[in-house]
Amino acid sequence: SIKEIEKEEIIKVLKEVNFNKKLASEILGIPLRTLYKRLKEYGI
């Protein structure tokens, strides 16, 4: 599903940037606030 793909992509990017959420949100092209929402939604 799209949610699974998105979750995997978020985890992959977070690992690449050593869990720097600000940098991860910039790489993913989403606002930091949205990233936090996704992390909560996906239980990351």
Score class of each variant (00 low, 15 high):
37 K>P: 02
36 Y>L: 15
9 E>S: 12
27 I>Q: 06
42 Y>L: 15
40 K>E: 13
10 I>M: 10
9 E>D: 10
8 E>V: 08
31 P>S: 15
20 N>Q: 05
31 P>D: 15
24 A>I: 02
19 F>W: 15
38 R>V: 15
34 T>I: 13
17 V>N: 08
44 I>F: 10
37 K>G: 05
16 E>T: 10
10 I>S: 01
22 K>G: 05
8 E>C: 11
29 G>S: 05
35 L>Y: 01
8 E>L: 13
44 I>M: 08
2 I>K: 13
1 S>W: 03
9 E>R: 15
38 R>S: 06
12 K>H: 07
34 T>W: 06
44 I>A: 05
36 Y>I: 15
31 P>C: 07
10 I>H: 02
20 N>E: 03
16 E>A: 14
30 I>R: 01
21 K>I: 15
15 K>L: 13
37 K>T: 07
36 Y>S: 09
31 P>W: 05
20 N>M: 04
24 A>M: 03
27 I>Y: 06
36 Y>P: 02
24 A>N: 00
12 K>P: 01
10 I>T: 08
32 L>T: 03
35 L>F: 07
12 K>D: 04
4 E>S: 10
26 E>I: 14
31 P>Y: 03
35 L>I: 04
26 E>M: 13
14 L>G: 00
27 I>K: 10
11 I>N: 03
39 L>I: 13
25 S>I: 03
16 E>Q: 13
17 V>W: 03
3 K>S: 12
28 L>K: 00
40 K>W: 13
12 K>R: 15
33 R>G: 12
5 I>Y: 12
22 K>L: 11
26 E>C: 07
4 E>F: 09
10 I>W: 03
34 T>C: 09
6 E>V: 08
11 I>R: 06
16 E>I: 09
5 I>G: 11
19 F>Y: 14
4 E>V: 11
34 T>P: 02
30 I>H: 01
19 F>L: 03
16 E>P: 01
14 L>C: 03
5 I>F: 12
10 I>G: 00
18 N>T: 03
40 K>N: 07
12 K>E: 05
7 K>L: 14
35 L>P: 00
11 I>L: 14
14 L>W: 04
43 G>S: 06
25 S>W: 01
29 G>T: 03
1 S>R: 10
38 R>C: 10
28 L>Y: 01
2 I>D: 14
42 Y>V: 05
17 V>T: 11
42 Y>K: 03
22 K>T: 07
30 I>T: 02
26 E>W: 08
33 R>F: 10
32 L>M: 08
9 E>C: 09
5 I>N: 13
34 T>V: 14
13 V>F: 03
15 K>D: 04
23 L>Y: 06
20 N>L: 03
34 T>L: 13
23 L>I: 09
44 I>C: 07
19 F>H: 06
22 K>Y: 09
23 L>R: 13
8 E>W: 14
42 Y>G: 03
35 L>D: 00
8 E>S: 12
2 I>G: 13
33 R>N: 13
36 Y>K: 15
26 E>K: 14
21 K>V: 15
11 I>E: 07
24 A>Y: 01
32 L>F: 03
15 K>N: 10
18 N>D: 08
19 F>C: 09
42 Y>F: 12
29 G>I: 02
8 E>I: 11
19 F>Q: 05
30 I>V: 06
38 R>P: 01
39 L>D: 01
2 I>P: 14
44 I>Q: 05
37 K>F: 06
22 K>C: 08
40 K>F: 11
28 L>S: 01
35 L>N: 00
24 A>E: 00
19 F>E: 03
7 K>W: 11
31 P>H: 07
3 K>G: 11
1 S>T: 13
11 I>P: 01
1 S>E: 13
40 K>H: 14
27 I>S: 04
26 E>H: 10
21 K>P: 14
13 V>C: 06
41 E>S: 05
37 K>L: 12
1 S>L: 11
6 E>S: 14
42 Y>S: 04
10 I>N: 01
41 E>Y: 07
6 E>D: 11
6 E>P: 09
19 F>R: 03
39 L>F: 03
18 N>R: 09
41 E>D: 09
2 I>R: 12
42 Y>E: 05
13 V>W: 03
28 L>T: 02
35 L>T: 00
21 K>T: 15
36 Y>V: 15
26 E>S: 09
39 L>R: 01
4 E>L: 12
6 E>F: 09
11 I>K: 06
33 R>S: 14
30 I>N: 00
43 G>C: 11
37 K>E: 15
39 L>S: 02
31 P>T: 15
38 R>H: 13
12 K>N: 08
44 I>L: 12
41 E>A: 07
13 V>A: 08
10 I>L: 13
14 L>I: 04
14 L>R: 00
6 E>H: 10
13 V>H: 02
